[in-house]
């Protein structure tokens, strides 16, 4: 481009103003379109009358899960949730490829922040807080049938507990030397990845086991876990939720570790060409 810079910036300013003017119009259009929607909270709205009563009335009897969201998520729409878990896993793998692998680090050395925020107050607070968070994560997972919760929520909670420890404690020290690939607490990047793989393989494995016992893929009713089909489905749903939990917790760890090693120890981002290379 040989053109002088000022006209181009003038042009972008006009374009930006025109663009900005489009958004009030968009908002007006959206609100006008909403006039056609059913009243908020209307029990006779189409969304509440056609399909959903079937799930509300039959879900608990068919799947043994009092929480209808869990019943729909892990049982009726189990195939969709398998894909969703794969999406999370793919995001973790993507981050790994974009950051860790492209940085040319064969041994995946990552153990949380290179500069942890440690202090006496933070150390003490995490010692008390993190065990409770991790325990609550498992509670949320196990009680996903009968109360709000499930694998996704529990997994994110568990991952957030691990991230808290990585933020405050950072990598482990051994004999005064920083073990750059071992976190002070929780799984390393490699273990997180293995957890995530185990979760998604376990999910698919439960689906395939249902096929092996004569049902369709992810149709848990045929699994030989008891005589009451609703109870069998409840157990299988718990298995699914545990698999999702592993994948989500592992992927949260992978995402955090890969993003946090984007910064090198001296604060210079990897691949920037500044500072000494390793």
């Amino acid at each position: 481009m040989g053109a002088s810079p000022p006209p181009r910036h003038e042009a972008t300013r006009v374009r930006r103003l025109l663009g900005a003017a489009a958004f009030p119009a968009l908002f007006t259009g959206l609100v006008l379109g909403m006039a056609e929607l059913p009243e908020f909270g209307d029990p006779a709205s189409p969304a509440s009358t056609h399909v959903s009563p079937r799930f509300i009335e039959d879900a608990a009897a068919e799947t043994g899960a009092a929480n209808m969201v869990t019943a729909v998520l892990a049982d009726y729409r189990g195939y969709d949730t398998l894909g969703e878990t794969a999406v999370i896993f793919a995001a973790g793998l993507g981050c790994l490829v974009i950051l860790a692998a492209a940085g040319g680090r064969p041994n995946l050395p990552a153990a949380g922040m290179s500069h942890p925020f440690g202090s006496v107050i933070l150390d003490t607070a995490t010692r008390i807080l993190v065990p409770v968070v991790l325990l609550f994560a498992v509670y949320v997972l196990i009680h996903g049938h009968i109360s709000p919760g499930g694998g996704f929520q529990g997994g994110v909670l568990f991952g957030s507990g691990l991230i808290m420890m990585r933020l405050v404690w950072g990598p482990a020290h051994e004999g005064g030397a920083r073990q750059s690939d071992v976190p002070a607490f929780g799984p390393s990047l490699r273990s997180s990845l293995i957890l995530a793989c185990a979760g998604i393989l376990g999910y698919a494995g439960i689906g395939l086991a249902a096929m092996a016992f004569g049902g369709e893929f992810l149709n848990y009713g045929t699994l030989p876990l008891g005589s009451d089909p609703a109870h069998v489905r409840e157990l299988a749903t718990l298995g699914i939720e545990a698999a999702v939990f592993l994948t989500v917790a592992g992927t949260v760890g992978v995402l955090f570790d890969t993003i946090s090693i984007g910064m090198r120890e001296d604060g210079v981002p990897i691949g920037s060409g500044r500072g000494p290379r390793e």
Binding site: A47, S52, A59, M68, A71, V72, R77, I98, I259
Partner: peptide
């Protein structure tokens, strides 16, 4: 209606994944 809740659970998960990947990029 439990169905929109379930769908949005999916949407939240997708949003977390896209955010994580985008942060990496």
């Amino acid at each position: 209606n439990p169905l929109p809740h379930t769908l949005m659970l999916t949407a939240i998960v997708v949003s977390v994944s896209t955010t994580g990947l985008a942060l990496g990029l």
